[in-house]
């Protein structure tokens, strides 16, 4: 049997290194086709605008004193149009200090995929 030819080993090694480099670049290109897809799926699935809008509306209701018909509107329409369970409790004057009166808002949102809970104190300056 012929003896192993051990010349040109550096060239072989360099060849391997270039191969590995090209392979990693290919992995990055492969990722790029999928990444926009999964990101936008995540954005679509997460009800960011729903929650922001709901939150600002509940605070508006609290500023009006927590009218029960508005809360019923919110609850009924959320269930009918957004398939979301919305509960909110608004307690004016729940906390008091010397200068401010605080309305306590407890907000619950659940659309089956995302659940959001928040307790919030809305301050209003006391009239001197």
């Amino acid at each position: 049997m012929e003896r192993l030819n051990d010349e040109g080993q550096w060239i072989v090694l360099m060849g391997f290194m270039v191969c590995v480099g090209i392979f990693f670049l290919a992995v990055i290109i492969a990722q790029s086709t999928v990444v926009g897809q999964t990101t936008s799926e995540g954005v679509l699935e997460f009800p960011k605008n729903d929650i922001q809008d709901l939150r600002s509306e509940v605070i508006e209701i609290a500023k009006r004193g927590g009218t029960s018909s508005l809360k019923a509107d919110l609850k009924t329409l959320s269930m009918a149009r957004k398939n979301a369970v919305v509960e909110c409790s608004i307690t004016p004057g729940a906390v008091n200090d010397s200068y401010y009166e605080y309305t306590r808002i407890i907000l619950h949102f659940n659309n089956g995929v995302t659940e959001f809970d928040e307790t919030f104190l809305l301050s209003r300056p006391k009239t001197p």
């Binding site: 392979f23 290919a26 492969a30 086709t33 897809q37 936008s40 799926e41 605008n49």
Partner: peptide, 22 residues
């Protein structure tokens, strides 16, 4: 790698433009 890169996009699966529009 080659098998992994062939992602089949169906019309109902095009979330990127939907996300921008929303």
């Amino acid at each position: 790698l080659v098998l992994g890169t062939t992602t089949v996009y169906t019309p109902g699966d095009v979330h990127i433009t939907d996300m921008q529009l929303q």
